[in-house]
Write a protein that binds this DNA or RNA. Sequence first.
DNA 1: TTTTATATATGCTATAAATCATTTAAATTT
DNA 2: AAATTTAAATGATTTATAGCATATATAAAA
Lengths: 238, 238
Amino acid sequence: MHFNIFRMRIKKDIISCRTCVYRQLLFGDLNDIEYGLINEGRTEMLFKRGETIKHEGEAIQSFLYLRSGLVKLYKTDKTGKDHILSINKPGDFVSLLSIFSGNTYRYSITAIEDTLVCDVNLEVLKYLVSTNGNLSLRLLNRMSKTSDEIIDNQFELAQKQVKGRVAHLLLFFANQIYRKNSFNLPLTRREIGELISITTENTIRTLSEFRKDGIIDMDGRKLMILDKDRLDIINKGG
Amino acid sequence: MHFNIFRMRIKKDIISCRTCVYRQLLFGDLNDIEYGLINEGRTEMLFKRGETIKHEGEAIQSFLYLRSGLVKLYKTDKTGKDHILSINKPGDFVSLLSIFSGNTYRYSITAIEDTLVCDVNLEVLKYLVSTNGNLSLRLLNRMSKTSDEIIDNQFELAQKQVKGRVAHLLLFFANQIYRKNSFNLPLTRREIGELISITTENTIRTLSEFRKDGIIDMDGRKLMILDKDRLDIINKGG
DNA sequence: TTTTATATATGCTATAAATCATTTAAATTT
DNA sequence: AAATTTAAATGATTTATAGCATATATAAAA
């Protein structure tokens, strides 16, 4: 559970949608009027690592997308334990799975690295969807892929046991997120466990074992993959 | 794994979209031209229990919705084991999670009861989405809810152990699917395991235990819930 | 700086659930 | 109707992993 204090800083209109690198990726081709609508009332918010951007159950008033940083989407169960659904990276539409089905968030969103979020009026998006067919298809595609990723991940994890899951997690960060073999783990050992459904102890134990076996090297959060081939084999269940 | 022979019978235009009970539910208000497009080239297909409607990886050429019956959506892993993602019932848009993200099915679909499926041209749907804003919002809403259901279900299961999962499954059929306490289980013990991620043996053992404890009564596939309160408690982890 | 809390690290133990083995029953197929 | 396959049922055994205990290190707060 996270009871972080909001210390976001609002940076209004530092970059217009017109010059945003994610513009095309997110919305495709929009006309000037449409961009104007998006830009209007738009805010940019900076969150420090550990700060919660949205709490599960909170009313949805805007749609969010990540400009930089990294966040986790997670749900908290009755016993207070968090279950991480996915890690979202720049360009991701972090509220996409919630905004069209209800009026509250179905998961919490917390920054796991310093994160810059764009916050745009939701009614504007809904208006644009209802008048722009290409945007609709684009969003249906994005939502479908977002959902696929979560489902596929669950499917993958269900077939692996502890070592395979940890290997999978390390390869995910190396290949999907950082695109290099050396990086700072953005998650604590506990959070890794919450993401791959194992205990904190087993996460720690397995990482230690990987180090002893010369597969990785670690120094606190700093992690380096030394033998990616073996990690691949372990990931595939070897 | 399922290698069933296709023995579907095609019943063309027995019911028009105009009189279909799911029309409004699925598409909202469409005009005559739009209904005409949907009806054109539409086929209805009947599948017997056990027959596979679509195989994972198969090209998507149409969109499907369930008129009657029950199906399972599932993925097969490298070892040949099936993992059931969800059970779909009449009114469900069984291909929704696949049609907007790629051109092949991301899961297989098999009838677990005799099932009537409507098969409609996909290009027509995409055309309607791109020209009808209400329909777009409606589909975004449906897709979001479909995805939520699968994700929430995984979240629920992750917190339960064997007995809780079996209880959860029985309550799902009683409350969500059949809306009565006595029904024929549409899944084998093995399939139940594939849906709630436990072994066949544990499914059988747990059902036997529930019977011994007077919580349920069974005769093969026929199942009757005798003590729903206890089942609720077990489901909640008691 | 000192205190407090949180994260990392390992060993030991308990246990839930998978695996293996075997039997009976019910469907399919020939 | 006989043969074969698949499903259901239980007992015994193994194993992976959770749970518990405790120590150290690191980070946050007083």
